[in-house]
Computed example of a mutant assay.
Amino acid sequence: MSWTRMGEGRGAAEQALEAILARVPAWAGAPLRYRAVSGGISNTNWRVQAGEGTDVFLKVPGRGTEMFITRDAAHEASRRAEACGFGVAVLDYLPEDGVEIFAFLDDFRASSNLDFLRPVVRHNAVRALRAFNDAPALTLTKTIFDMIEEHVGQVEAVGGRVPPDSAFLMRRYGQAKAALLASGLDLVPCMNDTLAGNFMLDGQDHVRLVDFEYASNNERAYELALWFDEMAFSAEVEREMIAAYWGRWTPQIHARTEVLKALGDLKWATWAMIQERVSTLDFDYYKYGTWKLSRARPLFHHPDWPRWLRLL
């Protein structure tokens, strides 16, 4: 992909980027050029060169993302990830724009689900997640219950689509919330967004975690549950990863994971119905949300659902 020089931006996305680049104090008067980086379904992503300096990465917040993302909290989480050894160096932060500027990981690439078919990648990812989850608490606490209930209200506010079995889904959600709260939550820093593209890999399969926009203190078991949602692992691999993270597999941890997998898919399906109404990005949010619900429903309808709740 070719570079665009500062001042040559034509579309709305490039002009929005250039307005932000002009406000970076360290780059005043420096020759700048940039190009788009693929990936992401909320923002536009960019690689930027400033003079003879090293390349950096930044993203421009997409329209409507302020409904879900507290940028100061995301920045705190990025710093926490850097400190725990599995994040990316944070070079600058523009709070008025909600824009973080990161070192560009030249020797790394975004992973895909296929990468996680290899045990070494899975285990390196678990070590990275565990390190972030074990980091000092974040300022923002936002549980999976807070997220779902916020999104349900937002869907109504923007006139988003509601699935025909919404009443059933919310009954199951209520059962899960009551059981999880009764069992007690282990609130720790969580990414809350463990899709494959947020794990960067180098040639030696070292892992770096990126994109902490949705990070908050949340139930620890949710981090692995959401990761399992995204990876579509087999039951055997999920058991392996639970043991790698927790040091053991137990029926109780398994039950907690299954219940939280259902809630994770419900959360992102509801998020997608909001994005369908407010986002300007070229992405099929309705299809994405429908896919998420197609994964949640078998869990909510599973014959073991009552037993899982009792085991929590």
Rank of each mutant, 00 (worst) to 15 (best):
R161P: 05
E100L: 12
V155E: 01
L94E: 01
A137W: 01
V210C: 00
L181D: 11
R122C: 14
H151A: 13
L140V: 15
T139L: 12
A110W: 06
R172L: 07
P164H: 13
G98H: 05
F86G: 05
L195Q: 14
F168G: 10
A131I: 03
F168H: 13
L140K: 14
L201E: 02
D115C: 04
E96W: 02
G98T: 00
V120E: 12
I148P: 04
D202W: 02
P164E: 15
L201Q: 03
S183A: 15
E149A: 02
G174A: 14
L105N: 00
L187W: 00
D107G: 14
V99E: 04
P95M: 04
G160W: 05
H151T: 12
L91Q: 08
A157G: 01
S112N: 10
A135L: 00
V126E: 01
V121W: 01
V210N: 05
A176V: 15
S111M: 10
V120L: 10
L94W: 06
D165C: 12
R130H: 13
E156T: 14
N198Y: 00
V152K: 10
D97T: 07
H206M: 11
Q204K: 12
T141E: 12
G197P: 03
A182C: 08
D106I: 04
A176M: 11
A179W: 03
I101Q: 02
R208Y: 07
D106Y: 09
R130G: 08
V188S: 06
L185A: 07
M200F: 15
R172E: 09
H151D: 12
Q154D: 10
E156M: 13
G160T: 04
F86W: 12
V188E: 00
M147Q: 15
D146V: 03
T143R: 08
H151P: 07
P95A: 02
A182V: 09
V207C: 08
F102K: 11
A110L: 10
G203N: 07
L117K: 13
L138E: 04
A179Y: 06
A196G: 02
P95Y: 03
V188W: 00
H151C: 10
K177L: 03
R130Q: 15
M170G: 07
S111T: 05
P119D: 11
N113P: 09
E100D: 12
N113C: 07
P136Y: 10
P164Y: 14
G197Q: 09
